[in-house]
Nucleic acid binder design. Structure first.
Lengths: 328, 328
DNA sequence: AATCAATCTGAAAAGGTTTTCAGTTTTTTG
DNA sequence: CAAAAAACTGAAAACCTTTTCAGATTGATT
């Protein structure tokens, strides 16, 4: 059937072991190496990765488990992870959980069966809570979200600070009735909530919060309610890009415009936030950096398994646009 | 080290073969099956997929090779492919080529080494042209783009028709000087070009075309030139979502608005096209359908390898928005 | 009751590679 | 130049399953 290392060995007049050594760049006399290499070319030999993995006990595979690759944050993240992975000669197996804990456990089990080298993982809060009870045979690096302190490496945005920066920005521009619409599944949303709440209280302002599943449709439903209330807020903050999108859609339907009718700000500097109306003020996350850092942590963890778990915290950047302009 | 099928066999007091049969749902006496199942639970056994793949000669893996997962078209496509794959108990290995032929050949080689069950592939024109000379050990289904007729299955939009529909739409609304900005790497852009050209000529209009690498920055550069010409067109068509985005950015920089300054239309109903200004007219592609169809074709090809190659052509849908409104 | 068929189980081979171990050749050293 | 060390190579074991084949058990038929 398919040509294997044995056939190459025969063609080159050497043992399979020697072929394997040539492939792995071990020491082999130039002359033999030459013969093997032409034999490989002639036979069109391609290594069988399953066999290689089985014998060498290295899968050269890393798992990427995210809620939904269609969330632009995770799209960009996945690209960064893949670039780093392929540079290190590793494959990436991609898994979408839809924020569904049962899918998460199923994929984590799959990762075990694949004997992956490591996993980059954005868990739901529900699964994250049990994360230190679970035991994996591979290192896990959490991204965007984290679990109970201490068991796994993680890389996250400084969410409280970022959230507070939004409040500060709005406050400085004269807004006082600042509402927040937050996701209800991740540690990230929770941190952004507490950053918001604290910043509000520091300024003697009353927090006004709502919670929603982190997707545009669900957010739009709640946003419509908030925006139709008699005491509509002056400003509305979204805890991530999907929710911000829902708000934008609700505003369009209701014929409301920022900043004239109310100020709007949120997270994730997605393309459309710069194009819509006269621009939406957002916190930009260094998404590619997050992905690269996660891979770096993963590799370092593999190198030094005993090292104490680390948290890498990156700063967001406030992108001021017209949606939070001071009204004259 | 890790618990294998042998350990389970010992624990259950049966042979490894029986354990394997239980795992594969073959006939095994209820009593033994019971014993094996509890042994599996007790030992925490997890199958080793590498070993399984090596022995069974089924990788249960499909490759997905796309230019860039960050292009929303391919993001959505990948999600559809993965959903279908995981339903069929298959993994997906994701590869980004950046429209770079050398990365394409490298990934195709990787697919051979993985002994994948099949590949879903959006090739550059350059590689597509050689595609019938190459021989793979696995079926390949082309998506979005196709190669020289006849060797592989493919799923594409009816691009000529869609492109013509845009011209027709603009023509019906009174626009006559209709320019087109097309990508230069794919068969898709070429088809959209010829649909455009023919539709223009049928109406006695002179085609005005420019070509550009399919990414927003490159498109923005050319768009700025087009929009600054003395004989600026009445209307501008983009051959895909990334180019349309470049045009939108250029217009914003130049302070131009659609439809007042010129009409704008394009492909791919991305979120932002409905939010920007008063909406951009686009052809919406049934992206998820394209992904599902591709997987269906792949599975049917595996089932019936001899079948003549098929082309599935899906229709786009014109979403009329304000950017092509007739000027009163 | 004896035979035949059908069902179930276990021993052993197979899948394609890497790695160990021992043996052979080459190089270095005294 | 001889002995020791180093470098290289090949045979065989190992990685963990699935699958084949033959043997054993059960059930059905005459």
């Amino acid at each position: 059937m398919s040509v294997g290392i044995k056939d190459v060995a025969v063609a080159a007049g050497v043992s399979p072991a020697t072929v394997s050594r040539v492939l792995a760049n071990h020491h082999v006399k130039p002359e033999l190496r030459e013969r093997v290499e032409t034999a490989i070319r002639l036979t069109g030999y391609r290594p069988n990765l399953s066999a290689r993995r089985l014998r060498s006990q290295h899968s050269n595979t890393i798992g990427l488990i995210v809620p939904d690759i269609r969330n632009p944050f995770f799209t960009t993240l996945s690209r960064a992870v893949e670039d780093a992975a392929y540079k290190a000669n590793m494959r990436v197996v991609l898994c979408n959980t839809d924020e569904n804990p049962s899918r998460e456990t199923m994929y984590l089990r799959l990762m075990q069966e694949e004997r992956v080298t490591g996993v980059i993982y954005a868990p739901t809060r529900e699964t994250a809570a049990q994360l230190d009870r679970l035991n994996f045979d591979f290192p896990v690096v959490l991204v965007d979200r984290y679990g109970p302190a201490g068991k796994h490496d993680s890389v996250v945005l400084d969410n409280r600070q970022a959230s507070a920066a939004l409040v500060e920005h709005l406050h400085a521009r004269g807004f006082r009735s600042i509402a927040g619409l937050f996701g209800n599944t991740s540690s990230t949303a929770r941190d952004r909530l507490s950053g918001y709440t604290e910043a509000m209280q520091e300024r003697g302002l009353k927090p006004r919060t709502d919670f929603v599943a982190p997707n545009p449709d669900a957010a739009a439903v709640v946003a419509r309610q908030i925006l139709s209330r008699k005491d509509r807020p002056d400003a509305l903050i979204a805890s991530n890009g999907l929710i911000l999108l829902g708000i934008a859609q609700a505003m369009q339907e209701l014929g409301l415009r920022a900043p004239d009718d109310l100020a709007v700000a949120g997270f994730d500097n997605e393309i459309w936030t710069g194009l819509i109306g006269s621009g939406l003020t957002v916190i930009e996350q260094p998404v590619a950096d997050i992905g690269h850092s996660a891979m770096r942590l993963l590799f370092e963890r593999i190198e030094t398994p005993e090292m104490a778990p680390r948290v890498v915290m990156l700063s967001g950047k406030l992108i001021e646009r017209n949606s939070t302009r001071r009204l004259s």
